[in-house]
Design a protein around this nucleic acid. Structure first.
Lengths: 136, 136
DNA sequence: GGGTGGTGGTCTCAAAAAGAGACCAGCACT
DNA sequence: AGTGCTGGTCTCTTTTTGAGACCACCACCC
């Protein structure tokens, strides 16, 4: 028994899960997190959690995303099972993206982080400003 | 009143927070999330949530991180106020990294996502495999 | 029938970020 | 004098991202 007695079992469990219990290289948790790490993933998830959107609607909704990254991010989210893509055979075929059950479930967890960010972005901004000041 | 009646107020709020209420370009929530988007940020946060670590310990703990990215990710986390860096004037100076209160607070939110990933990585893996099969 | 505009993309090329690995000063121990 | 550990930085290559042109299809409008 050393000083590493852990009173935060759940945190330790999470850490062990991320390290795959010693098998850190191909850890499933890291793979999943990696999929959400994209610059646009969480934003698109938040948008689609509100309601389904079509490709062009998303592009207008997020003006600073390039069409290339919108295509790719949606493809990745679809691949991981968070997003459903449905093509409607209208005159110019339209494509609708919506969350799957898995996507809604995942967003429930992601939401905690987004809400934290909403409540604490001032603290982060302050910390950043203070740090930059000392480094100047 | 159109079909967009929203029964998920909290989700909508999160979305609005991310979009900055129409000011999507410089939205504070996106800035914060961006800081956690790094490939190694969440892993290092999980490690430091368990206990403080020294630089070399972290390097050994996460063998597949390059020294360069370890330095940089820790710097970024410190800049955003999640991590405290303390230099001890030992013979070869040692450096200890630990979570700040802000860091612990943030990890509390991040943890939900990590736990979700731990519980659902099978579903994601399956979705991925199924999707890849249809694309082949 | 010839322009215009909206559909959802792909392709190419430049810029930014990440990874690999060499290198460094300082000191302790042998 | 050599070896090893400390916490880094520097340079080079590869991967990821961003900007923007291009595309086929069809509807609409004259």
């Amino acid at each position: 028994m050393d000083s590493r007695i852990v009173n935060l079992r759940s945190k330790l469990d999470v850490y062990k899960a991320m390290t795959g219990g010693g098998n850190l290289a191909d850890c499933p948790v890291r793979e999943v997190i990696q999929g959400l790490n994209g610059k646009w993933s969480s934003l698109l998830m938040a948008a689609l959690a509100e309601q389904p959107y079509r490709f062009g609607e998303l592009r207008r909704l997020v003006p600073d995303i390039s069409q290339r990254m919108l295509t790719q991010t949606l493809y990745d989210l679809q691949r991981d099972g968070y997003v459903h893509r449905e093509v409607f055979p209208t005159k110019p075929p339209s494509v609708e993206y919506s969350l799957t059950d898995l996507g809604r479930s995942m967003f429930g967890a992601l939401q905690h982080l987004l809400q934290w960010a909403e409540l604490n972005h001032d603290a982060v901004r302050e910390a950043r400003a203070g740090f930059d000041a000392t480094q100047a």
